[in-house]
Design a protein around this nucleic acid. Structure first.
Lengths: 101, 101
DNA sequence: TCGATATTTAGCGTACACGCTAAATATCGA
DNA sequence: TCGATATTTAGCGTGTACGCTAAATATCGA
C-alpha cells in the first residue's frame, strides 16, 4: 500500500468511526466474534436499512469483513485496519515516529 | 471523568479527526510546537474563516489548547486527549482490555 | 414450486458540515 | 487617538450523512 492509498484508507477509517453507532457496531462484532447482519441490526435501535448502511460504510472502510453464507451474511472485524489509526496516533508519541506512515 | 463524559469526549475527538484538514492541522501544530492561528491558516489552502472553524472544532474536542497572547492566539496540541482514542482502540487488542474505559 | 426468512435497494426529508465573502472585534504601534 | 494587524463572527449556498418506510432481491424449507 503506497502512501497515497494509505492516506485514503486512513480517511475512510476515520470517517467510519466518526459515528457512534458504527463504533458500537464495530466493538460489538469484535467482542462477540462473528455476527450476522440480523444479529447486529437486532441489537441496535435503528431501523434495519439504517444499520445496513452503517455496515456498508464499515465494510468499505475495510473495518468489517463480510462473508455470505446462505441467507445470512456474516460480519467480522478486521483489526488490521485499525492499525492505520494506531500508526497515525504514533505521530503524536514523544520522540518516536511510526515506521513509514 | 465519569463514563458518560468519557463517551462524549471520545465522540468529540472522533468527530474532530474525521476531517482531513483537521488531522493535518493537528499534526502540523504538534510537529511545529505552538502556532498562531495565522501561521496555521497561512499554511492551509482554505480561507481563514474556514480554518478558524476547524480550529474551534479541535479546541472544543479538547485536542487543541489555546492561549491568547496580545493580538495573537497560540495553539498547542493536548496529546492527553488522544489517549481517549488509544484507549478505545485498546478494546480491539487481543485478550487485553483498557483499565476502565 | 411457494411461502417464509434474511438482507438490501430505492427513495424521501431534514439537519448539519463545510466552503465561501463580507463585516465585526480586539489589540498593538506610532 | 488612529490606522494597521490578527482573528473571529455573521450569513449564505450546496452537498451529503443519516434517519425513516416501502419495495425488491435472494435463499432456504416444505
Amino acid at each position: 500500500m503506497d502512501a497515497e492509498a494509505k492516506l485514503a484508507a486512513l480517511d475512510a477509517v476515520c470517517t467510519a468511526i466518526a459515528h457512534p453507532a458504527r463504533r458500537q457496531i464495530l466493538l460489538t462484532v469484535h467482542l462477540r466474534g462473528a455476527m450476522t447482519a440480523g444479529d447486529i441490526a437486532g441489537r441496535f435501535a435503528h431501523a434495519w436499512p439504517t444499520t445496513t448502511r452503517h455496515l456498508t460504510v464499515l465494510v468499505e472502510a475495510g473495518l468489517l469483513l463480510t462473508e455470505k453464507s446462505g441467507r445470512h451474511r456474516l460480519y467480522t472485524v478486521d483489526r488490521a485496519r485499525l492499525e492505520l489509526l494506531k500508526e497515525w496516533l504514533g505521530w503524536f508519541d514523544p520522540r518516536e515516529a511510526p515506521e513509514k506512515a
